[in-house]
Nucleic acid binder design. Structure first.
Lengths: 182, 182
DNA sequence: GGGCGTTTTGGAATAATGTTCTAGGTGGTT
DNA sequence: AACCACCTAGAACATTATTCCAAAACGCCC
């Protein structure tokens, strides 16, 4: 059910997929559907939380797999694109839908940002990364990769190539690393 | 009418605004509405074209206002954020909605990209900008600014500050400019 | 100003879609 | 077998988009 919903939501958007389509794709009756979910929106919300949890967990693992700031910064960029390639349905869904405000989601996001940000501050204190606010750091770090994936998933550009990922990784380090002259 | 639609579409999304809301906000009757537009979606499409035309025109003007590559690259980043601040409804609408494929839109986009890209190639041939494909250049150039604006318009971060814009402008130049050692 | 064709408006009728409700079925427990 | 909690099915209902036609407004010619 959730699997079918993911594909439909990714292709047509939450608003664009009818309940009939959902039911046809997953073979559940109206009553059954409403027994398990409060409605279409709630399915979308559950899916959203699931996707973002999956992404954030993998992101943190990637971060911890590197011990130098340079490797982590570049690695995270490559990771972001890789994750989108491996889970295109989830990525398309996450980038397209604007989730309704949800306490569970806020909680999760806050915990994620806290963890990433504390890592960042340690690196910055060591003189490996520049000291900027979290938002600026985030958009410089993953903004280009995010935009590249978005364009690809929207059909506006080709699938990101290894060479492009290299460019983006290097650029991120050039923007965020503090250990070269400036 | 289009003005009211813009605000509602920006706030609630196209799918989230009912026709009644649209009619209440603009004071037109059902028949009148369907006489002028083929439906809700078509209003969205018309709005989308209008917004993107406005943006692209202003972007090209900004580009031509600089004669050095450095000023143009940095200026465009600042311009992007400035434009979003000046037209938050339009920006929110453009960043949120996935427009249906439209020949008019494709035509316009192609012309825009052609123009920007030809400017880019001239600068690259002069040795002022790096030689990369258009997509990579675009995401490195405006990806961070775009992501920053998106976060702000989605209420996930504060309004972009002058300091943030400076950071992004500098980073864009550091990524794209070719006249410093590398 | 008065007819007359065209454009525009208004709102009832219709269609599509999301949600609720109720009657029943299923499987496990005693 | 009787009971009970959970689940399924689909008809009934509510909301919303769209169609349709009659009437009003408009522009134009005489």
């Amino acid at each position: 059910m959730l699997r079918a919903a993911l594909e439909l939501f990714g292709r047509d958007g939450v608003a664009g997929t009818t309940l009939s389509a959902l039911r046809a794709a997953s073979g559940v009756s109206v009553g059954s559907f409403y027994h398990h979910f409060a409605g279409k929106e709630q399915v979308a919300e559950a899916l959203f939380v699931e996707c973002i949890a999956m992404y954030q967990e993998a992101f943190l693992a990637e971060l911890k797999a590197h011990d130098g700031a340079r490797g982590a910064v570049s690695g995270a960029v490559a990771f972001h694109v890789r994750w989108c390639k491996e889970h295109p349905d989830r990525a398309r869904f996450m980038f397209t839908e604007r989730p309704a405000a949800s306490a569970a989601l806020d909680e999760r996001n806050k915990a994620f940002y806290r963890e990433v940000w504390s890592w960042w501050r340690v690196q910055a204190r060591h003189g490996a990364l520049i000291g900027v606010d979290g938002t600026t750091a985030f958009v410089l770090w993953l903004g280009p990769a995010q935009e590249l994936c978005r364009m690809w998933l929207n059909g506006q550009s080709a699938e990101p190539s290894a060479r492009q990922i290299e460019w983006l990784s290097e650029a991120a380090w050039r923007s965020l690393g503090a250990d070269h002259d400036r």
